[in-house]
Write a protein that binds this DNA or RNA. Sequence first.
DNA 1: ATAACGTATTTTGTATGCAAAATAAACCCG
DNA 2: CGGGTTTATTTTGCATACAAAATACGTTAT
Lengths: 220, 220
Amino acid sequence: MNSNVIVRAPLHVQVAERLRLLIDSGELAPGTRLNENELCQNMGVSRTPLREAIRSLATEGLVELQPNRGAIVSVVSQDDVTEILPIMASLEGLGGRLAAVQMHTDQIKQIRQIHNQMVTHYQKNEVTKYFETNRLIHELITEGSGNQTLVDTINSLSAKVRRARFSAQMTRESWERAVSEHEEMITALEASDPNRLEAILIQHVETKRTTILGSLQQSQ
Amino acid sequence: MNSNVIVRAPLHVQVAERLRLLIDSGELAPGTRLNENELCQNMGVSRTPLREAIRSLATEGLVELQPNRGAIVSVVSQDDVTEILPIMASLEGLGGRLAAVQMHTDQIKQIRQIHNQMVTHYQKNEVTKYFETNRLIHELITEGSGNQTLVDTINSLSAKVRRARFSAQMTRESWERAVSEHEEMITALEASDPNRLEAILIQHVETKRTTILGSLQQSQ
DNA sequence: ATAACGTATTTTGTATGCAAAATAAACCCG
DNA sequence: CGGGTTTATTTTGCATACAAAATACGTTAT
Protein backbone atom coordinates (compact mmCIF):
# COMPACT_ATOMS: atom_id res chain seq x y z
CA MET A 1 0.00 0.00 0.00
CA ASN A 2 1.40 3.31 -1.04
CA SER A 3 -0.42 6.59 -0.45
CA ASN A 4 2.36 8.59 -2.11
CA VAL A 5 1.11 7.67 -5.54
CA ILE A 6 2.82 9.71 -8.15
CA VAL A 7 0.07 11.12 -10.29
CA ARG A 8 1.47 13.19 -13.06
CA ALA A 9 -0.93 16.11 -13.36
CA PRO A 10 -3.16 16.05 -16.45
CA LEU A 11 -1.87 18.06 -19.37
CA HIS A 12 -4.68 20.60 -19.28
CA VAL A 13 -3.83 21.37 -15.67
CA GLN A 14 -0.15 21.84 -16.48
CA VAL A 15 -1.05 24.00 -19.43
CA ALA A 16 -3.39 26.08 -17.28
CA GLU A 17 -0.61 26.65 -14.76
CA ARG A 18 1.80 27.67 -17.47
CA LEU A 19 -0.74 30.06 -18.98
CA ARG A 20 -1.50 31.53 -15.57
CA LEU A 21 2.20 32.18 -15.14
CA LEU A 22 2.50 33.80 -18.56
CA ILE A 23 -0.46 36.05 -17.83
CA ASP A 24 0.66 36.86 -14.32
CA SER A 25 4.17 37.76 -15.45
CA GLY A 26 2.77 40.04 -18.09
CA GLU A 27 4.34 38.03 -20.88
CA LEU A 28 0.80 37.67 -22.14
CA ALA A 29 -0.40 41.21 -21.67
CA PRO A 30 -4.04 42.14 -21.07
CA GLY A 31 -5.94 42.25 -24.33
CA THR A 32 -3.66 39.80 -26.09
CA ARG A 33 -5.41 37.27 -28.27
CA LEU A 34 -4.64 33.68 -27.40
CA ASN A 35 -3.83 32.00 -30.68
CA GLU A 36 -4.41 28.32 -30.21
CA ASN A 37 -2.04 27.01 -32.86
CA GLU A 38 0.72 29.33 -31.74
CA LEU A 39 0.40 28.37 -28.08
CA CYS A 40 0.14 24.71 -29.00
CA GLN A 41 3.42 24.85 -30.85
CA ASN A 42 5.15 26.79 -28.10
CA MET A 43 4.04 24.34 -25.45
CA GLY A 44 4.19 21.23 -27.53
CA VAL A 45 0.66 20.05 -26.85
CA SER A 46 -2.38 19.56 -28.99
CA ARG A 47 -5.33 21.91 -29.04
CA THR A 48 -7.59 19.80 -26.87
CA PRO A 49 -5.80 20.20 -23.53
CA LEU A 50 -4.94 23.80 -24.40
CA ARG A 51 -8.56 24.64 -25.00
CA GLU A 52 -9.59 22.92 -21.78
CA ALA A 53 -7.04 25.02 -19.95
CA ILE A 54 -8.34 28.19 -21.56
CA ARG A 55 -11.87 27.35 -20.43
CA SER A 56 -10.60 26.99 -16.88
CA LEU A 57 -8.85 30.33 -16.96
CA ALA A 58 -12.03 31.85 -18.33
CA THR A 59 -14.07 30.77 -15.32
CA GLU A 60 -11.25 32.07 -13.15
CA GLY A 61 -11.67 35.37 -14.92
CA LEU A 62 -8.11 35.57 -16.23
CA VAL A 63 -9.16 35.34 -19.85
CA GLU A 64 -12.31 36.35 -21.64
CA LEU A 65 -13.97 34.11 -24.19
CA GLN A 66 -15.14 35.68 -27.41
CA PRO A 67 -17.43 33.28 -29.27
CA ASN A 68 -15.93 32.21 -32.57
CA ARG A 69 -13.03 34.52 -31.95
CA GLY A 70 -11.20 32.66 -29.26
CA ALA A 71 -10.03 34.23 -26.05
CA ILE A 72 -8.14 37.32 -24.96
CA VAL A 73 -6.28 37.99 -21.75
CA SER A 74 -8.87 39.85 -19.74
CA VAL A 75 -8.30 43.53 -19.17
CA VAL A 76 -8.47 44.67 -15.56
CA SER A 77 -10.04 48.10 -15.59
CA GLN A 78 -9.92 50.78 -12.94
CA ASP A 79 -13.55 49.97 -12.18
CA ASP A 80 -12.64 46.34 -11.60
CA VAL A 81 -9.98 47.36 -9.11
CA THR A 82 -12.42 49.73 -7.44
CA GLU A 83 -14.82 46.81 -7.05
CA ILE A 84 -12.26 44.30 -5.88
CA LEU A 85 -10.41 46.29 -3.22
CA PRO A 86 -13.32 46.71 -0.76
CA ILE A 87 -13.99 43.00 -1.06
CA MET A 88 -10.38 42.22 -0.32
CA ALA A 89 -10.48 44.58 2.63
CA SER A 90 -13.42 42.70 4.13
CA LEU A 91 -11.89 39.32 3.51
CA GLU A 92 -8.38 40.17 4.67
CA GLY A 93 -9.95 41.71 7.74
CA LEU A 94 -11.84 38.53 8.41
CA GLY A 95 -8.71 36.48 7.83
CA GLY A 96 -6.79 38.62 10.29
CA ARG A 97 -9.51 38.41 12.91
CA LEU A 98 -9.42 34.64 12.72
CA ALA A 99 -5.63 34.42 12.48
CA ALA A 100 -5.16 36.60 15.56
CA VAL A 101 -6.83 34.01 17.79
CA GLN A 102 -5.60 30.92 15.99
CA MET A 103 -1.97 31.33 15.07
CA HIS A 104 0.67 29.80 17.27
CA THR A 105 3.48 31.87 18.69
CA ASP A 106 6.13 30.21 16.55
CA GLN A 107 4.15 30.99 13.41
CA ILE A 108 3.86 34.59 14.54
CA LYS A 109 7.58 34.70 15.20
CA GLN A 110 8.20 33.52 11.67
CA ILE A 111 6.04 36.32 10.33
CA ARG A 112 7.91 38.82 12.49
CA GLN A 113 11.15 37.63 10.91
CA ILE A 114 9.81 38.00 7.41
CA HIS A 115 8.47 41.40 8.39
CA ASN A 116 11.96 42.42 9.48
CA GLN A 117 13.31 41.27 6.13
CA MET A 118 10.65 43.32 4.43
CA VAL A 119 11.62 46.42 6.36
CA THR A 120 15.23 45.88 5.30
CA HIS A 121 14.14 45.65 1.68
CA TYR A 122 12.19 48.85 2.18
CA GLN A 123 15.19 50.65 3.61
CA LYS A 124 17.44 49.41 0.83
CA ASN A 125 14.80 50.42 -1.71
CA GLU A 126 14.59 46.87 -3.09
CA VAL A 127 11.14 47.15 -4.59
CA THR A 128 10.68 43.68 -6.02
CA LYS A 129 11.91 41.88 -2.92
CA TYR A 130 9.78 44.19 -0.82
CA PHE A 131 6.65 43.19 -2.71
CA GLU A 132 7.58 39.53 -2.49
CA THR A 133 7.96 39.54 1.27
CA ASN A 134 4.94 41.82 1.63
CA ARG A 135 2.79 39.40 -0.28
CA LEU A 136 4.17 36.47 1.68
CA ILE A 137 3.21 38.10 4.96
CA HIS A 138 -0.35 38.69 3.82
CA GLU A 139 -0.56 35.12 2.60
CA LEU A 140 0.74 33.72 5.86
CA ILE A 141 -1.72 35.76 7.92
CA THR A 142 -4.61 34.71 5.74
CA GLU A 143 -3.51 31.10 5.90
CA GLY A 144 -3.30 31.53 9.66
CA SER A 145 -7.07 31.84 9.63
CA GLY A 146 -7.21 28.13 8.92
CA ASN A 147 -9.90 28.82 6.35
CA GLN A 148 -8.79 27.44 3.00
CA THR A 149 -11.84 28.74 1.15
CA LEU A 150 -10.99 32.21 2.40
CA VAL A 151 -7.41 31.82 1.22
CA ASP A 152 -8.56 30.71 -2.22
CA THR A 153 -11.11 33.50 -2.54
CA ILE A 154 -8.61 36.18 -1.58
CA ASN A 155 -5.94 34.75 -3.88
CA SER A 156 -8.29 34.75 -6.82
CA LEU A 157 -9.20 38.40 -6.28
CA SER A 158 -5.65 39.38 -5.44
CA ALA A 159 -4.38 37.89 -8.69
CA LYS A 160 -6.54 40.25 -10.70
CA VAL A 161 -5.49 43.37 -8.83
CA ARG A 162 -1.87 42.39 -9.00
CA ARG A 163 -2.12 41.91 -12.73
CA ALA A 164 -3.18 45.52 -13.09
CA ARG A 165 0.37 46.44 -12.01
CA PHE A 166 -0.40 49.78 -10.46
CA SER A 167 1.78 49.08 -7.48
CA ALA A 168 5.04 50.05 -9.10
CA GLN A 169 4.14 53.71 -8.91
CA MET A 170 4.16 53.92 -5.15
CA THR A 171 5.21 57.23 -3.68
CA ARG A 172 7.71 57.31 -0.84
CA GLU A 173 4.99 58.49 1.56
CA SER A 174 2.47 55.78 0.78
CA TRP A 175 5.23 53.24 0.93
CA GLU A 176 6.32 54.47 4.34
CA ARG A 177 2.75 54.38 5.51
CA ALA A 178 2.30 50.83 4.24
CA VAL A 179 5.38 49.73 6.16
CA SER A 180 4.21 51.33 9.39
CA GLU A 181 0.82 49.70 8.98
CA HIS A 182 2.62 46.41 8.60
CA GLU A 183 4.44 47.07 11.84
CA GLU A 184 1.07 47.61 13.53
CA MET A 185 -0.25 44.42 11.98
CA ILE A 186 2.52 42.33 13.44
CA THR A 187 2.10 44.00 16.82
CA ALA A 188 -1.63 43.25 16.83
CA LEU A 189 -0.88 39.69 15.79
CA GLU A 190 1.65 39.26 18.60
CA ALA A 191 -0.92 40.68 21.01
CA SER A 192 -3.54 38.26 19.61
CA ASP A 193 -5.86 41.21 19.17
CA PRO A 194 -8.41 40.22 16.49
CA ASN A 195 -10.33 43.50 16.34
CA ARG A 196 -7.22 45.59 16.04
CA LEU A 197 -5.67 43.36 13.40
CA GLU A 198 -8.90 43.39 11.43
CA ALA A 199 -9.10 47.18 11.59
CA ILE A 200 -5.51 47.61 10.48
CA LEU A 201 -5.88 45.21 7.59
CA ILE A 202 -8.96 47.03 6.37
CA GLN A 203 -7.15 50.34 6.73
CA HIS A 204 -4.18 48.86 4.92
CA VAL A 205 -6.24 47.99 1.87
CA GLU A 206 -7.74 51.48 1.97
CA THR A 207 -4.20 52.89 1.85
CA LYS A 208 -3.53 50.64 -1.12
CA ARG A 209 -6.65 51.93 -2.83
CA THR A 210 -5.60 55.53 -2.37
CA THR A 211 -2.15 54.74 -3.72
CA ILE A 212 -3.53 52.98 -6.76
CA LEU A 213 -6.09 55.61 -7.61
CA GLY A 214 -3.48 58.29 -7.13
CA SER A 215 -1.05 56.65 -9.53
CA LEU A 216 -3.91 56.06 -11.95
CA GLN A 217 -4.80 59.72 -12.09
CA GLN A 218 -1.18 60.59 -12.73
CA SER A 219 -1.04 58.19 -15.64
CA GLN A 220 -4.00 59.79 -17.34
CA MET B 1 -24.86 48.18 -38.23
CA ASN B 2 -26.53 45.95 -35.72
CA SER B 3 -25.36 45.71 -32.13
CA ASN B 4 -27.98 43.07 -31.32
CA VAL B 5 -25.94 40.39 -32.94
CA ILE B 6 -27.41 37.00 -32.32
CA VAL B 7 -24.55 34.93 -31.04
CA ARG B 8 -25.65 31.44 -30.23
CA ALA B 9 -23.63 30.55 -27.18
CA PRO B 10 -20.87 28.01 -27.76
CA LEU B 11 -21.82 24.43 -27.03
CA HIS B 12 -19.47 24.06 -24.10
CA VAL B 13 -21.11 27.05 -22.44
CA GLN B 14 -24.59 25.64 -22.96
CA VAL B 15 -23.43 22.28 -21.66
CA ALA B 16 -21.87 23.91 -18.61
CA GLU B 17 -25.13 25.69 -17.85
CA ARG B 18 -27.10 22.50 -18.20
CA LEU B 19 -24.70 20.62 -15.96
CA ARG B 20 -24.80 23.39 -13.39
CA LEU B 21 -28.58 23.10 -13.36
CA LEU B 22 -28.46 19.33 -12.98
CA ILE B 23 -26.04 19.62 -10.08
CA ASP B 24 -27.91 22.47 -8.43
CA SER B 25 -31.23 20.65 -8.65
CA GLY B 26 -29.71 17.60 -7.06
CA GLU B 27 -30.42 15.48 -10.12
CA LEU B 28 -26.69 14.89 -10.15
CA ALA B 29 -26.13 14.26 -6.48
CA PRO B 30 -22.82 15.00 -4.71
CA GLY B 31 -20.37 12.19 -5.24
CA THR B 32 -21.91 11.08 -8.54
CA ARG B 33 -19.42 10.14 -11.22
CA LEU B 34 -19.82 12.07 -14.43
CA ASN B 35 -19.70 9.47 -17.18
CA GLU B 36 -18.70 11.25 -20.36
CA ASN B 37 -20.31 8.89 -22.86
CA GLU B 38 -23.52 8.77 -20.90
CA LEU B 39 -23.80 12.55 -20.60
CA CYS B 40 -22.85 12.98 -24.24
CA GLN B 41 -25.68 10.76 -25.35
CA ASN B 42 -28.17 12.45 -23.02
CA MET B 43 -27.25 15.89 -24.26
CA GLY B 44 -26.57 14.97 -27.84
CA VAL B 45 -23.11 16.49 -28.02
CA SER B 46 -19.67 15.08 -28.53
CA ARG B 47 -17.16 14.62 -25.79
CA THR B 48 -15.04 17.66 -26.60
CA PRO B 49 -17.48 20.40 -25.53
CA LEU B 50 -18.67 18.27 -22.64
CA ARG B 51 -15.16 17.89 -21.34
CA GLU B 52 -14.51 21.60 -21.71
CA ALA B 53 -17.65 22.26 -19.69
CA ILE B 54 -16.56 19.85 -16.99
CA ARG B 55 -13.20 21.65 -16.71
CA SER B 56 -15.05 24.91 -16.20
CA LEU B 57 -17.24 23.47 -13.47
CA ALA B 58 -14.11 22.10 -11.85
CA THR B 59 -12.55 25.53 -11.49
CA GLU B 60 -15.88 26.73 -10.16
CA GLY B 61 -15.62 24.02 -7.56
CA LEU B 62 -18.86 22.26 -8.49
CA VAL B 63 -17.13 19.13 -9.64
CA GLU B 64 -13.86 17.56 -8.64
CA LEU B 65 -11.44 16.18 -11.18
CA GLN B 66 -9.89 12.83 -10.47
CA PRO B 67 -6.97 12.26 -12.82
CA ASN B 68 -7.61 9.34 -15.15
CA ARG B 69 -10.88 8.73 -13.38
CA GLY B 70 -12.93 11.61 -14.68
CA ALA B 71 -14.93 13.87 -12.43
CA ILE B 72 -17.41 13.57 -9.59
CA VAL B 73 -19.93 16.09 -8.34
CA SER B 74 -18.07 17.66 -5.45
CA VAL B 75 -19.23 16.84 -1.97
CA VAL B 76 -19.89 19.79 0.30
CA SER B 77 -18.83 18.78 3.78
CA GLN B 78 -19.79 20.29 7.10
CA ASP B 79 -16.28 21.72 7.28
CA ASP B 80 -16.80 23.42 3.92
CA VAL B 81 -19.98 25.04 5.17
CA THR B 82 -18.22 26.09 8.35
CA GLU B 83 -15.57 27.75 6.23
CA ILE B 84 -17.95 29.40 3.80
CA LEU B 85 -20.50 30.95 6.15
CA PRO B 86 -18.17 33.44 7.89
CA ILE B 87 -16.98 34.55 4.47
CA MET B 88 -20.54 35.05 3.31
CA ALA B 89 -21.30 36.97 6.48
CA SER B 90 -18.47 39.40 5.76
CA LEU B 91 -19.41 39.78 2.12
CA GLU B 92 -23.15 40.13 2.64
CA GLY B 93 -22.38 42.64 5.35
CA LEU B 94 -20.24 44.63 2.95
CA GLY B 95 -22.91 44.39 0.28
CA GLY B 96 -25.53 45.68 2.69
CA ARG B 97 -23.34 48.54 3.84
CA LEU B 98 -22.89 49.66 0.26
CA ALA B 99 -26.50 49.03 -0.71
CA ALA B 100 -27.82 51.06 2.21
CA VAL B 101 -26.27 54.24 0.84
CA GLN B 102 -26.72 53.49 -2.83
CA MET B 103 -30.15 52.01 -3.44
CA HIS B 104 -32.93 54.26 -4.65
CA THR B 105 -36.22 54.50 -2.79
CA ASP B 106 -38.17 52.72 -5.51
CA GLN B 107 -35.76 49.81 -5.43
CA ILE B 108 -36.15 49.65 -1.68
CA LYS B 109 -39.92 49.74 -2.05
CA GLN B 110 -39.71 46.79 -4.38
CA ILE B 111 -37.71 44.85 -1.82
CA ARG B 112 -40.26 45.75 0.84
CA GLN B 113 -42.97 44.28 -1.35
CA ILE B 114 -41.07 41.06 -1.88
CA HIS B 115 -40.39 40.98 1.83
CA ASN B 116 -44.13 41.18 2.49
CA GLN B 117 -44.69 38.31 0.10
CA MET B 118 -42.03 36.35 1.94
CA VAL B 119 -43.75 36.95 5.26
CA THR B 120 -47.00 35.67 3.77
CA HIS B 121 -45.25 32.52 2.60
CA TYR B 122 -43.85 32.14 6.10
CA GLN B 123 -47.29 32.49 7.67
CA LYS B 124 -48.80 30.02 5.21
CA ASN B 125 -45.89 27.65 5.83
CA GLU B 126 -44.98 27.61 2.13
CA VAL B 127 -41.38 26.56 2.56
CA THR B 128 -40.22 26.50 -1.05
CA LYS B 129 -41.73 29.84 -1.96
CA TYR B 130 -40.36 31.28 1.25
CA PHE B 131 -36.84 30.26 0.30
CA GLU B 132 -37.30 31.60 -3.20
CA THR B 133 -38.35 35.07 -2.05
CA ASN B 134 -35.78 34.99 0.73
CA ARG B 135 -33.02 34.32 -1.73
CA LEU B 136 -34.33 36.99 -4.08
CA ILE B 137 -34.21 39.62 -1.34
CA HIS B 138 -30.62 38.80 -0.49
CA GLU B 139 -29.72 38.93 -4.16
CA LEU B 140 -31.39 42.29 -4.66
CA ILE B 141 -29.67 43.80 -1.66
CA THR B 142 -26.29 42.52 -2.79
CA GLU B 143 -26.92 43.78 -6.30
CA GLY B 144 -27.89 47.09 -4.73
CA SER B 145 -24.26 47.45 -3.75
CA GLY B 146 -23.51 48.09 -7.40
CA ASN B 147 -20.49 45.83 -7.09
CA GLN B 148 -20.76 43.04 -9.64
CA THR B 149 -17.62 41.28 -8.47
CA LEU B 150 -19.13 41.13 -5.01
CA VAL B 151 -22.36 39.69 -6.42
CA ASP B 152 -20.45 37.03 -8.33
CA THR B 153 -18.27 36.12 -5.37
CA ILE B 154 -21.23 35.74 -3.04
CA ASN B 155 -23.21 33.75 -5.60
CA SER B 156 -20.38 31.34 -6.11
CA LEU B 157 -20.08 30.68 -2.38
CA SER B 158 -23.81 30.65 -1.85
CA ALA B 159 -24.27 27.99 -4.52
CA LYS B 160 -22.09 25.59 -2.59
CA VAL B 161 -23.85 26.09 0.72
CA ARG B 162 -27.23 25.79 -0.93
CA ARG B 163 -26.21 22.55 -2.55
CA ALA B 164 -25.59 21.09 0.87
CA ARG B 165 -29.36 21.29 1.42
CA PHE B 166 -29.40 21.69 5.15
CA SER B 167 -31.96 24.44 5.09
CA ALA B 168 -35.00 22.19 4.89
CA GLN B 169 -34.61 21.20 8.52
CA MET B 170 -35.37 24.61 9.95
CA THR B 171 -37.10 24.69 13.30
CA ARG B 172 -40.04 27.01 13.82
CA GLU B 173 -38.00 29.16 16.19
CA SER B 174 -35.05 29.70 13.91
CA TRP B 175 -37.47 30.37 11.08
CA GLU B 176 -39.27 32.98 13.11
CA ARG B 177 -36.00 34.55 14.05
CA ALA B 178 -34.87 34.66 10.43
CA VAL B 179 -38.07 36.41 9.45
CA SER B 180 -37.75 39.02 12.18
CA GLU B 181 -34.15 39.64 11.17
CA HIS B 182 -35.39 40.19 7.66
CA GLU B 183 -37.85 42.74 8.96
CA GLU B 184 -34.95 44.55 10.64
CA MET B 185 -32.97 44.38 7.42
CA ILE B 186 -35.65 46.12 5.43
CA THR B 187 -36.07 48.74 8.14
CA ALA B 188 -32.36 49.48 8.14
CA LEU B 189 -32.44 49.66 4.37
CA GLU B 190 -35.35 52.09 4.40
CA ALA B 191 -33.49 54.17 6.96
CA SER B 192 -30.35 54.04 4.76
CA ASP B 193 -28.41 52.91 7.78
CA PRO B 194 -25.30 51.11 6.48
CA ASN B 195 -23.82 50.08 9.81
CA ARG B 196 -27.08 48.69 11.09
CA LEU B 197 -27.79 46.78 7.88
CA GLU B 198 -24.30 45.37 7.89
CA ALA B 199 -24.62 44.23 11.49
CA ILE B 200 -27.98 42.59 10.88
CA LEU B 201 -26.77 40.77 7.78
CA ILE B 202 -23.78 39.42 9.66
CA GLN B 203 -26.03 38.37 12.51
CA HIS B 204 -28.41 36.81 10.00
CA VAL B 205 -25.72 34.55 8.60
CA GLU B 206 -24.76 33.64 12.16
CA THR B 207 -28.36 32.56 12.76
CA LYS B 208 -28.17 30.49 9.62
CA ARG B 209 -24.98 28.87 10.84
CA THR B 210 -26.57 27.91 14.13
CA THR B 211 -29.57 26.48 12.32
CA ILE B 212 -27.45 24.44 9.98
CA LEU B 213 -25.14 23.08 12.63
CA GLY B 214 -28.15 22.27 14.79
CA SER B 215 -29.85 20.29 12.07
CA LEU B 216 -26.56 18.61 11.27
CA GLN B 217 -26.14 17.34 14.81
CA GLN B 218 -29.68 15.99 14.74
CA SER B 219 -28.99 14.09 11.55
CA GLN B 220 -26.00 12.32 13.07
C1' DA C 1 -7.79 56.30 -54.95
C1' DT C 2 -11.23 54.22 -52.36
C1' DA C 3 -15.25 51.56 -51.38
C1' DA C 4 -17.38 47.33 -51.96
C1' DC C 5 -17.54 42.84 -53.23
C1' DG C 6 -15.86 38.16 -53.60
C1' DT C 7 -12.34 34.78 -52.80
C1' DA C 8 -8.54 32.66 -50.15
C1' DT C 9 -6.52 31.80 -45.82
C1' DT C 10 -6.47 31.48 -41.15
C1' DT C 11 -8.63 30.39 -36.87
C1' DT C 12 -11.98 28.60 -34.08
C1' DG C 13 -15.64 25.00 -32.88
C1' DT C 14 -16.98 20.29 -32.83
C1' DA C 15 -16.55 15.42 -33.84
C1' DT C 16 -14.02 11.34 -34.16
C1' DG C 17 -10.11 8.14 -33.50
C1' DC C 18 -6.46 6.05 -31.00
C1' DA C 19 -3.61 5.00 -26.86
C1' DA C 20 -3.23 4.58 -21.91
C1' DA C 21 -5.25 3.99 -17.64
C1' DA C 22 -8.79 2.16 -14.73
C1' DT C 23 -12.52 -0.92 -13.85
C1' DA C 24 -14.86 -5.24 -14.37
C1' DA C 25 -14.82 -9.98 -15.40
C1' DA C 26 -12.94 -14.39 -15.94
C1' DC C 27 -9.84 -17.58 -14.53
C1' DC C 28 -6.55 -20.14 -11.93
C1' DC C 29 -4.61 -21.96 -7.86
C1' DG C 30 -4.55 -22.67 -3.05
C1' DC D 1 -15.04 -21.84 -2.06
C1' DG D 2 -12.01 -17.65 -1.64
C1' DG D 3 -8.02 -14.80 -2.71
C1' DG D 4 -5.24 -13.24 -6.13
C1' DT D 5 -3.71 -12.81 -10.84
C1' DT D 6 -4.55 -12.32 -15.64
C1' DT D 7 -7.46 -10.89 -19.39
C1' DA D 8 -11.29 -8.28 -21.40
C1' DT D 9 -14.04 -4.16 -21.37
C1' DT D 10 -14.93 0.29 -20.33
C1' DT D 11 -13.56 5.00 -19.65
C1' DT D 12 -10.62 8.64 -19.75
C1' DG D 13 -6.80 11.55 -21.92
C1' DC D 14 -4.87 13.42 -25.86
C1' DA D 15 -4.32 14.07 -30.83
C1' DT D 16 -6.07 14.62 -35.21
C1' DA D 17 -9.58 15.63 -38.77
C1' DC D 18 -13.30 18.09 -40.58
C1' DA D 19 -16.77 21.98 -40.70
C1' DA D 20 -18.02 26.70 -39.87
C1' DA D 21 -16.92 31.15 -38.86
C1' DA D 22 -13.94 35.08 -39.04
C1' DT D 23 -10.14 37.54 -40.92
C1' DA D 24 -7.10 38.91 -44.64
C1' DC D 25 -6.40 39.73 -49.26
C1' DG D 26 -7.02 40.99 -53.92
C1' DT D 27 -9.92 42.50 -57.52
C1' DT D 28 -13.20 45.37 -59.66
C1' DA D 29 -16.06 49.24 -60.25
C1' DT D 30 -17.12 53.88 -59.25
